[in-house]
Simulated scan of single mutants.
Amino acid sequence: MVDNPKESAGRCAQVAGWLTAACQAGHTLLSEPEAKAVLQAYGIPIVETRIALTEDEAVQQAEQLGSPVVLKLLSPTITHKSRMGGVRLVLRTAEEVRQAYRAVAEAAERQAGAGQMQGVTVQPMVTLEGYKLIVGSFCDPQFGPVLLFGSGGRLVEVRRDTALALPPLTTTLARRLLERTRIFTALQHGAAGLPAVDLAALERLLVRFSLLIVEQPLIRECDINPVLAAGDHLLALDARIVLHSIDVPEIALPRLAIRPYPSHYLEN
């Protein structure tokens, strides 16, 4: 899978500009819409996500998207929203949206104190039945950026079904990463009434994610949890990106353990 070199360079520069601007502004934790914009730039499918800074804006965005919708806390400091009551699902009416907004605001103040809520994000409630997966990355002191894949959702830490790999990935290496998880059998053959997943599409998603991590060294951590895999549909429902501090000089940023193949040797 080879991208057009000019398009690839333009995408890399555009996203690097976004991340550098965020670092310079002191925002090392991207908002969910910002993180999803980064993923979308690398061809990773996302669910549409809009920002609402007030209760009335939340109602307006919900009406434009169509019911049902999901409301999530928008905060510059709180990353794990569901753990503290910052996610409200299956909202069908304006009154339900208003009640959800107030509940999220109360939970944020109770858990993190006043001033930690910027607003909410509003997105369509995805009703597809499928597998919830996690795709992520973190920086290891010895190996640099490391990729993670496995069973996702709210029980990711309970199931402990993940595997690690070093970027960059090819589709072959992506398949090997998939095969090292327990959920792979279900993805390949289907299970519990759910169909098998388009493994080739999932491999391509992993390759694109690894390319993001390779090309954007300012990223310290990145989690897509969950990635919904339903038949031939793949969709990033939530995303979190943490950047290195602007105080970290470029020479001190984690280095890849495996050097990418020189792009000038690739042909379309």
Rank of each mutant, 00 (worst) to 15 (best):
M1H: 07
N4Y: 02
G10F: 04
C12R: 14
W18P: 03
A21R: 14
A22W: 02
Q24A: 14
P33I: 02
A35P: 10
V38Y: 02
A41L: 03
E48I: 11
E48L: 12
A52G: 07
A52R: 08
L53R: 14
D56P: 04
S75V: 06
K81C: 11
G85E: 10
R88D: 06
V90E: 11
T93Q: 02
A100M: 06
A107P: 09
A108N: 06
Q111A: 15
P124C: 07
M125Y: 12
Q142A: 14
V146E: 00
R154Y: 08
L155D: 14
E157P: 10
E157M: 04
T162P: 04
L164P: 00
A165G: 07
A165T: 01
P168H: 00
R176L: 13
R182N: 15
L194M: 07
A201L: 10
R204M: 12
V207P: 03
V214L: 00
E215C: 04
I219V: 15
R220A: 15
E221S: 00
V227R: 06
G231P: 11
L234G: 08
L234S: 09
L237D: 07
S245Y: 10
R255K: 15
I258D: 00
R259P: 06
R259T: 11
P260Q: 03
N268A: 12
